[in-house]
Amino acid sequence: MKLLLVEDEVDLLEVIKESLEKEFFVVETVGNYADALQKLISYEYDCVLLDIMLPDGNGLDLLAKLKQLKKSDNVIIISAKDSVEDKIKGLEMGADDYLVKPFHIAELNARIKSVLRRKFLDGKNTIELANTRIDMDFRQVWIAGVELALNRKEFDILSYLAVNKNRLVNKIALAEQVWGDNIDGADDFEFIYSQIKNLRKKLKENSAEIEVKAVYGIGYKLIIL
């Protein structure tokens, strides 16, 4: 998978690139409008991560150019501006998603993979991990061909961790994903643990070859045994 990252902040560019390379993506980076346009005209990318505010132009213009060139590159807008109008405008112009800074790495991964799944697995929106198969559309989990019954929160946790397999997922990122953005002011995140505990038990009882591992003080990680 080849990604193009358009971002003028060098530090952010580097950290995102490093993270995406852990997912075995091929990542190319550019820091301004002109270079980005050059790259977009010359090459094909599976997904473009596009910052709207660039020193020499607007990311939305790049999006328009891309559509004008009838390129099939998927686009995820990354913006510091959390404005509904911008979001709607970006999506109407053909962006696949809109992510507001600051975001968790796990969230970026999830968004990119969701875009890519839709692009490549025509109609089959599933994730396969060892003997476990997760159907994202029908919200079903199968272990070695047997369906595993999970409640909504358990499913959300499992699928989010599965998208970020082998990556450390911050517990706040997980809480926001599963319990909603409004939960972020909670004064402790103990409540995640009880759901994780249930999920672990169910995975183990059904001999899944995956495990949710706690990372001390930070969050959780899904690993393949």
Partner: peptide, 18 residues
């Protein structure tokens, strides 16, 4: 203006924790 530096710090820390 604070959003981007905050994003950099958060993501850098998340990577470090891995």
């Amino acid at each position: 203006e604070l959003q981007t530096p905050l994003a950099i710090s958060l993501n850098r820390l998340e990577l470090l924790a891995e």
